[in-house]
């Protein structure tokens, strides 16, 4: 079974997980994800690939602690094993020489967009990152972004890093200042991606988002992950996870992500009361 090489808190509620999975590492491309099952009774949950190291044979993800599965992951230690770590899954993000690309990242998306930032720079783009966090102490991997991006901006709900704002405003400002911008890529919580899509739509700038519907197998077998894009039903795990943000039926995605809200609360209560280490 795949072995955990590292599991630690990056900032409050956001953790890094590095797993020994040499075959997966060999094939990783920016924008892909893995499915992990924290223990034998666990759920199969998708996590974006935030980094990989072919030599070490490892794959890294960054996750937000929200419910039972991610709490179980947060309790793992180096040397533990997980029953399932399968991937890489999904279509890789499109990497080409586009010109100027603006990345909008928040939450686990800061990790998830890192391979894309690196690859876009290597492909000769001007890469600008706008990183969003509730407060400055919740920003991680700042130095990584600064090492490959032409500019890195921040938005947070406190004043410590930059303007006190939510991401759409600084994003709009950046798009104007950097015009013409060839594309925007936004990754993070659903609301952040939705807000970025709203901001870029009037400007007519192509915007890519990495959708995060509920999944089970991650290989196109179940249809749990279905989303509507351009009026057609798509399976996010095999047709995505990247989609054109202006074609996505956001309301449907918000609703479908909440499918099991009551069950998730029940599961979490049971876990915290009976199993939490």
């Amino acid at each position: 079974m795949p072995k955990i090489l590292d599991q630690r808190r990056l900032v409050p509620n956001l953790h890094l997980l590095e797993v020994h999975a040499p075959e997966v590492a060999r094939k990783c491309r920016p924008g892909q994800f893995v499915i992990i099952m924290p223990d034998e009774r666990g759920e199969r949950i998708p996590l974006s690939i935030a980094d990989w190291d072919v030599e070490r044979g490892s794959v890294t993800a960054v996750f937000l602690v929200v419910g039972t599965s991610t709490r179980k992951l947060a309790a793992l230690k180096a040397g533990n094993e997980v029953p399932v770590f399968v991937g890489p899954l999904g279509r890789p993000s499109e990497i080409a020489s586009f010109g100027t690309v603006v990345l909008a990242a928040g939450c686990f998306g800061i990790g998830a967009l890192w391979p894309t930032a690196r690859a876009l720079k290597a492909a000769g783009n001007k890469v600008i990152a706008v990183i969003d966090a509730k407060a400055d102490y919740l920003v991680y991997w700042k130095d990584r972004y600064q090492s490959v991006c032409d500019r890195v901006l921040f938005s947070s709900r406190d004043h410590a890093l930059a303007s006190k704002d939510f991401i759409p405003r600084p994003l709009e400002d950046t798009l104007k200042a950097e015009a013409p911008v060839a594309r925007v890529i936004a990754v993070g919580c659903t609301y952040l991606m939705y807000a970025c899509a709203q901001a870029t739509k009037p400007l007519g700038i192509k915007t890519i988002v990495s959708l995060n519907p509920i999944m089970v197998d991650g290989t196109g077998m179940c249809g749990a992950c279905r989303c509507t894009a351009a009026g057609k039903t798509k399976f996010a795990c095999v047709d995505g996870p990247d989609f054109d943000a202006h074609e996505v039926d956001w309301e449907e995605l918000f609703i479908r992500r909440k499918s099991y809200f009551d069950d998730e609360v029940r599961s979490l209560c049971r876990y915290e009361e009976t199993e939490l280490p």
């Binding site: 199969r44 179940c222 249809g223 609703i255 909440k258 998730e264 599961s267």
Partner: peptide, 27 residues
């Protein structure tokens, strides 16, 4: 929400053992 493919429904119950939720995590 509430419309499944048979594959998803049966996979949740059989492979993921959702019949034993919440002892198993998949609902």
């Amino acid at each position: 929400v509430g419309v499944y493919s048979a594959n998803e429904y049966l996979t949740r119950v059989n492979l993921m053992r959702a019949y034993a939720f919440p002892a198993y995590d998949t609902p």
